[in-house]
Simulated assay, not measured.
Amino acid sequence: MKNFLTLLFLFNLNLAGYAQNASAVDKEKLFDFYQTQRYADAAQYLKSIYGEEVNDFKTLSQIGYCFLMAGNNVEAEKFYSKAYTLQPQNLPILFSLGSINNKRGNTEKAKKYNGEIVQIDRNNFNVYKLLANLYPLPTDSMKLVYLLKANQINPLEGDVAADLAEVHAAYQQYEKAYDVLDIAIKGDSDNLVLQRAKLPITNQLKKYAEVISSGEKLLKDGADAGVIKDVAKAYYYTKKYQKAIDLFKLLGVAAMQNEATLYYTSLSYRALKNYPQAALYTKKTIDEAISPNTSNYY
């Protein structure tokens, strides 16, 4: 009984100390730090009030947030980690620790914290998106798993749709990639990023009329090299060779041509029976294909 009363006394003393510290905070001064985005000053001020050994969850979270906003990830992780030991299933803390470790290149730790979020909330779109981004290679199976889950929760979100389509395309699953982008574009018809991402996939599916229709609209927004190439290829495959040549030449003017575009230009001239130009572009194709370092290899 005596030991219990001693522990109770110490606990109440600790609460009293925290209450005194809390009452010592100048709220107007702290608010001014927030208003002027002086988060480093706010963090140091709170530390001067509560000290280094603070064990209150709310205070730890507040100081951690200030350091995070100030860009001091080392100090932010220190305070958030203490808060994590007090409430290991707190979603804002887990998100913050995941973000901090991702910024610091600690990918495995970022996966750990985000993975814990999944265990708590299996329908959290943001965490699946974050986890997918922790796998840089489009052929990584876990990237596909997380993108599929995120897209299932919100099929209209553009970033996830574009990333998922890229993964499907890497596996040559062009129909799946097309469908993912098609749904997202229907939800955001003015999203030019999604429309550009869809063009090469549409070309792979030989939907050339759609490539031309969509691509010509995109070209009015700007001469994007990728769009020019895709539309030009669609014109070539629909036997509109002069239009293909005109677009491929735009790449040449901008010094953005490559072996493939030069080759298609050569084929277009040959289809038009303009053999001198076909020969010229065949030579350009060969020159482009030969590395300038070839002599060094020998």
Rank of each mutant, 00 (worst) to 15 (best):
K243A: 08
P88Q: 07
A254H: 02
Q242L: 13
D140F: 07
L97N: 08
Q195D: 01
Y39P: 00
D224C: 06
Y241W: 12
L247N: 00
L147T: 04
Q204A: 13
C66K: 03
V253T: 13
E210T: 15
I49P: 00
P92Q: 07
Y128M: 07
Y178W: 04
D159E: 14
K176G: 12
A42F: 05
L262W: 02
N72L: 07
L147R: 00
S99P: 04
L219A: 00
V193M: 08
F4T: 15
K284V: 11
Y297E: 13
L8A: 13
Y297D: 11
E28L: 09
A223G: 00
S189P: 08
S81I: 06
A16N: 11
K103W: 06
I63W: 03
I185D: 02
Q242H: 03
V211P: 07
E175S: 15
L194Q: 03
D163S: 14
L46Q: 06
T6K: 14
Y174I: 12
S268L: 10
I183M: 07
A232E: 00
T202E: 00
P88V: 04
Y146W: 04
S48D: 11
Y236N: 02
A132K: 04
Q173N: 14
Q87R: 15
D140Q: 07
P138K: 11
K129C: 03
T261N: 01
G215I: 09
A184V: 09
I49R: 09
E28S: 12
L148W: 01
K220T: 13
Y174W: 12
L192P: 14
Q44D: 06
G252W: 06
S295Y: 09
K103P: 01
K82S: 05
L134Q: 02
K2P: 00
V227T: 15
Q119V: 10
S61Y: 12
E77Y: 13
P92R: 02
C66M: 15
C66V: 13
A42V: 15
Y264W: 09
K112M: 06
L7I: 12
P138F: 02
L13I: 08
Y208W: 15
K109C: 05
G187D: 04
L10Y: 05
K129F: 07
D182P: 09
E53Q: 14
D182Y: 06
K229D: 01
K2R: 15
E210W: 05
A232G: 01
E288M: 15
S48N: 13
Q62N: 12
Y241G: 03
A162W: 08
S295N: 10
K78C: 01
A40W: 08
Q119D: 07
E166T: 09
A43E: 01
L131M: 08
L194Y: 10
V180Q: 05
Y84D: 09
G64T: 07
Q35K: 10
A254T: 13
V253N: 02
G17D: 07
A244D: 01
D221M: 13
A19C: 02
Y236I: 06
Q87E: 11
